[in-house]
Nucleic acid binder design. Sequence first.
DNA 1: CGGAATCCTTCACGATACTG
DNA 2: CAGTATCGTGAAGGATTCCG
Lengths: 136, 136
Amino acid sequence: MKPLAKPVEELPREQLPHHEDPRCVPVRRLLQTVGSKWCSLVVAHLEYEPRRFSDLKRSIGGVTQKSLTATLRELEKDGLVNRVVTPSIPPRVDYSLTPLGRTLLVPLKALTNWAIENEAAVSSARERFERENGPD
Amino acid sequence: MKPLAKPVEELPREQLPHHEDPRCVPVRRLLQTVGSKWCSLVVAHLEYEPRRFSDLKRSIGGVTQKSLTATLRELEKDGLVNRVVTPSIPPRVDYSLTPLGRTLLVPLKALTNWAIENEAAVSSARERFERENGPD
DNA sequence: CGGAATCCTTCACGATACTG
DNA sequence: CAGTATCGTGAAGGATTCCG
């Protein structure tokens, strides 16, 4: 049998990123940001239209004002979310996705869709794991 | 001027997930898993070939045995990683991606690529934010 | 070699109260 | 309305030690 083009063992392992690789820094920061408890819901709720703070808080539900503020600040820092203050009485603050934030939407939705599509496979894997290794 | 098909205000806001929406559960679990400190590096190092524990630990670098074990266990629970024990002396344990884990690779790499491609935009946004709101 | 067990620090997040 | 300030908690992660 003819050998394949290149045995797996000879693939460029030395190109794999060490944890000090500079490319790891932005990747880890992004993943930790989107992995924070409320980030994905906030982004989802900003997809179609700008939203006011308490509007966002009410329609997401279960989030404290502090956590929502922190999540929005983090997204604002990264240039993903725009914050527009209208100094009226009562004050009004609108949040929306920036163009940069919109480009993130594509790969982020791909990942969340994976989670939904493979939910059954993952949870049955977890049940199997608990059967074999104890429910500790 | 002819009105567009549907004003933004009439988009299906009621379809946006409330935090108690059952679909949120697997999404948040996955995002938190991939957002954990070492997950992305571990998955990247398993992409091309199975790896032994200390091999993995050495080539990733900077990770403690405890954190590496915890990360691998979590991935194993979710059915993304396979753990194969060879009871020799000294013992040998090989980790590899399952077929399910391989399918995750696609959307996950899309997201990490976004982070790398937009690193400049994000970090300049952060600098701007600090200039305007103080480096506190 | 591949862990488990233990201790310790940090930090994300929630609850609550107060303010321009 | 849209925050800030403060306090308390659990969970994540690091350092170290011991084991089959």
